[in-house]
């Protein structure tokens, strides 16, 4: 197990370094070292790294890890392999906030986008929870998922209506919908980074309880787990992590759907193993998606969500085909 953990960590670090080096203009190890340790204000390489590549590398790392963990949590809570953070309405809420902000209030997507999207994601999530919780806290996982799906559909519909009527913002919104980790300054990344790290750190003590939860509600209750409380905590963490990531990197919840499956198949079913593993795999998937995204049709860029999906899906399908599953 430790070897696997070290291997993953090493792979993430290497991927991050490649991400710093890769682009229209390739940079060597010295240049990266130079830029990270003793940057000079007038060195072009340093500016390139600190100005664009460092921030997008960080965003890819954090967003990938956050979404993967969020997806793992929601799959455990609902017990449904089809669940992803999108099912809580996070993406739809963020999209609606962006579209409404850009279309109705003429807010610029670049500056206020993160806050608007975070707000939209959070509010939608809360609304889903409220709907599912109607009636003395009997929110079963299925009800939650259905409420989320319905609300997501509703909000997407409103966004679509706004977009069809006013096609001016369509291009920028399409780019956001496809996911993008570029175009943020290094200082703009800090709130997101700190938020994700804090939520993940606070969540570590709950990992072992998730194992109990995944054994089914009744079993969990009989061994003394407080199921509703755990579900609420897991959902809150899901909403925070995914909302945070989506607000920064766009609508790329797909990481949250497939990476947990990859992680479980590679690392077994113990949440203490696979959930951190999912974080590493998610970060790596998004990093490589971004690296490919800026290389394939350079100097233009493919949306990171697209590149990541094109890379991730063949892996995913191959893994599902290779490993069996005792029941199903």
């Amino acid at each position: 197990m430790t070897t696997k953990a070290f291997g993953l960590l090493l792979a993430v670090i290497c991927s991050a370094l490649v991400s710093l080096a890769a682009g229209g203009h390739w940079l060597g190890p010295e240049a990266i070292w130079h830029a990270l340790v003793m940057p000079e204000a007038d060195n072009i390489d340093d500016l390139l790294i600190r100005g664009t590549r460092a921030s997008r590398t960080l965003i890819a790392l954090v967003a990938g890890a956050s979404l993967a963990v969020a997806g793992g949590l929601i799959q455990t809570v609902t017990g449904n392999p089809l669940a992803s953070p999108g099912i809580l309405g996070i993406n739809a809420g963020a999209l609606l906030a962006l579209v409404a902000g850009a279309g109705l209030l003429s807010l610029p997507l670049a500056g206020s986008g993160y806050v608007a999207a975070l707000l939209g994601a959070g509010l939608t999530c809360g609304l889903v929870w409220l709907i599912a919780m109607q009636g003395a806290g009997r929110a079963g996982p299925l009800r939650l998922v259905l409420a989320g799906a319905a609300l997501a559909a509703l909000f997407n519909a409103i966004s679509q209506a706004l977009l069809v009527v006013d096609q001016q913002g369509l291009d920028a919104i399409l780019v956001w919908m496809a996911g993008s980790v570029a175009g943020h300054s290094l200082t703009g990344v800090w709130p997101m980074l700190v938020g994700a790290v804090v939520v993940m750190a606070l969540g570590v003590p709950f990992l072992r309880h998730l194992n109990v939860l995944s054994a089914g509600e009744q079993t969990a209750r009989t061994v003394g787990a407080r199921v509703r409380g755990l579900q609420a905590i897991a959902l809150l963490a899901t909403a925070l992590l995914a909302g945070n990531a989506v607000a920064m990197a766009g609508s790329i919840a797909f990481v949250g759907l497939i990476v947990p499956h990859l992680a479980r198949r590679l690392l077994g079913s113990d949440h203490r193993c696979w959930l951190p593993g999912a974080a590493a795999l998610g970060a790596m998937l998004l990093l490589w998606g971004d690296i490919v995204a800026r290389l394939v049709i350079a100097p233009r860029e493919v949306p990171v969500g697209v590149a990541m999906t094109l890379i991730g899906v063949p892996f995913f399908i191959g893994l599902i085909r290779m490993t069996g599953r005792p029941h199903g």
């Binding site: 949306p303 999906t309 399908i317």
Partner: peptide, 16 residues
């Protein structure tokens, strides 16, 4: 699982 994966792949192609 495979259906969802292929669906995402097709979606990515559309976006691209």
């Amino acid at each position: 699982l495979i259906g969802v994966g292929m669906g995402a792949l097709a979606g990515a192609v559309v976006t691209l």
